[in-house]
């Protein structure tokens, strides 16, 4: 039972990370608080579902299409956000809230109010790993999330582009003075965010379910993990996702399923109180 909880916690935590990375990146670089993050993810899931169901395209092949859809959607979103004045965070909340309503109704119109699933036969199987059973869906969630997280970490830490992105996250004005094209960084952040959402969407449809109004719980999750991690801390996002996933799994075993969200909320409040700069923050001002 404990091994199950451990595997489930890490697998779910990795997926949480994948969901939150796009949000954290866009917010960190552009300071746009995108409340429509979850709706975009669900939209990517629906795009994959439509291809899988209507054109019987194999599940894996739906990822590139979902990424393209998200690149277009995020391009439009960025154009809209770029018109906003200060205070940027507040204005972006208002704008993205409007987009949430628009997207939810559009999805309701296009895909109806039925719950949709992408059925991947391989997900129903699994394998034993050191006497512990791990299902294929958990394994794929874990591996894909780790690969994406690894690539993002490499990009952020080993490339000039990553350094420029991090510099923009830390201090926009200083980055601009250092010759970094801050506006271009915003476009790159939105594009990377779109790729991450485009990868998470089909996975969400294959491991959870799609429904026009499920996006808000995804957004809430992304916000929670970004707060855990501390704004702009990509490594913190990974750690925060795992901690949340594990804490929720252990809470179900120890305390019962009804305590799951309570434990997440207590963790969030504790982090805000004791580590207001995030899980890896050092208390800087």
């Amino acid at each position: 039972m404990w091994t199950t909880a451990l595997i489930s916690g890490i697998s779910l935590g990795s997926f949480y990370t994948l969901i939150a990375l796009g949000f954290a990146l866009i917010y960190g670089v552009t300071r746009n608080f995108n409340l429509a993050h979850g709706e975009l993810l669900v939209l990517a899931g629906y795009a994959a579902y439509w291809l899988w169901k209507t054109w019987t395209i194999p599940f894996l092949m739906t990822f590139p299409a979902a990424v393209i859809v998200m690149l277009v959607a995020c391009f439009v979103l960025q154009r809209l956000f770029s018109r906003l004045g200060e205070p940027r965070e507040l204005n972006s909340i208002v704008l993205s809230f409007g987009i949430v309503i628009l997207l939810q109704n559009a999805m309701l119109f296009l895909f109806s109010s039925d719950y949709r699933l992408i059925r991947v036969p391989a997900f129903g199987k699994g394998l034993f790993l050191f006497d512990a059973y791990i299902s294929n869906s958990q394994l794929i969630l874990l591996l894909l999330s780790l690969v994406v997280i690894g690539l993002i970490s490499l990009l952020m830490n080993r490339t000039y582009l990553g350094k420029a992105l991090r510099a923009t996250i830390q201090d926009k004005e200083a980055a601009a003075l250092a010759g970094i094209h801050v506006k271009a960084m915003g476009t790159i952040a939105f594009s990377l965010g779109a790729v991450l959402i485009g990868l998470a969407g089909p996975l969400y449809g294959a491991t959870h379910y799609l429904y026009p109004s499920t996006g808000h719980s995804v957004t809430l999750l992304a916000i929670t993990i970004t707060i855990f991690a501390g704004v702009g801390r990509m490594r913190g996002v990974i750690l925060a996702g795992w901690i949340l996933g594990l804490a929720e799994s252990v809470a179900v075993i120890l305390l019962g399923a009804s305590w799951r969200e309570m434990v997440g909320a207590v963790l969030l409040i504790s982090f805000l109180f004791f580590k207001p700069h995030g899980i890896l923050g050092k208390g800087e001002q």
Binding site: G9, S249, A257, S258
Partner: peptide, 20 residues
Amino acid sequence: MEKFRPGTPDFTPLIGKLAS
């Protein structure tokens, strides 16, 4: 007898409990 929030994202730990 267990209670859960509608829309729970993962039932695996609960399933582990049921199986055990």
